[in-house]
């Protein structure tokens, strides 16, 4: 699957190379980005100081004293077309959710389900972690089936606390710090993915799977 998408290579500043697999979010492009990030990590490319998988792209930050953009782009092209995949070591997480969010009944109404049926539909299948990095420990999980897709809210909430379970755009997201958000609040959880005293400070990685369970 990964090999069928030919990415675009772009500079991001003078110390970054962005490998973009698509212009919009799709499951294929997301898998391609996460898979490619794992491949670069396994290959250990000289001069690369940070590998950041995004929703449909990967940022490689590099040290120009060790490698230039053109040379790194060459390495990237070789890795994109190289056969084989790194072994999938993707972890599974179980997240207990208290479905008591302020927007829960509105969201259920938007998808024409009773609240209990919405919760059942939401938890029906494990989701994949599509991306991390929006805020400390924040994770995007997706994709829900088409019938559960709702747009973002019109109004941004100034702050929701850590452990808020958010829903929009075919995804469920979990906060680990207080953030502003334009997503619907459908519940909260004791699950946390950020501990500044731990190494690494977050443990959920893009590509992991998350099973949601109602409390």
């Amino acid at each position: 699957m990964t090999d069928t998408l030919t990415p675009t290579l772009l500079p991001l500043g003078d110390r970054g190379l962005l490998i973009r697999f698509a212009e919009s979010l799709s499951d294929d492009a997301n898998r391609a980005a996460i898979g490619f990030a794992a491949r670069v990590e396994a290959a250990g490319v000289r001069g690369v100081v940070e590998i950041v998988p995004n929703l449909v792209s990967v940022l490689l930050r590099y040290e120009p004293g060790a490698i230039g953009f053109d040379a790194l782009a060459g390495e990237v092209r070789l890795l994109v077309s190289a056969p084989g995949q790194p072994a999938a070591g993707d972890a599974e997480h179980r997240v207990t959710v208290h479905f008591d969010g302020e927007d829960l009944s509105e969201v259920a109404g938007l998808v024409r389900l009773l609240v209990a049926d919405f919760i059942a539909a939401h938890n029906a299948a494990p989701l994949r972690v599509l991306a991390t990095g929006f805020a400390p420990g924040f994770i995007y999980c997706g994709m829900h089936p088409e019938a559960l897709v709702v747009p973002r809210r019109g109004v941004v909430r100034r702050q929701v606390p850590a452990g808020t379970v958010l829903f929009a755009a075919g995804q469920t997201a979990i906060t680990s710090t207080a953030i502003p958000t334009g997503w619907h609040v459908i519940g909260h959880t004791e699950f946390r993915n950020f501990d500044p005293a731990a190494e690494p400070p977050t443990t959920v990685r893009a590509g992991d799977s998350v099973a949601f369970v109602a409390s």
Binding site: L12, G13, R15, G16, L18, R20, A22, E23, S24, L25, V52, N54, L55, V56, S57, L59, R61, A131, G133, F134
Partner: peptide
């Protein structure tokens, strides 16, 4: 409208 988010670097 509607760009998919990417990592940010200082100076963007």
């Amino acid at each position: 409208l509607s760009l998919v988010s990417d990592a940010v670097v200082p100076g963007d």
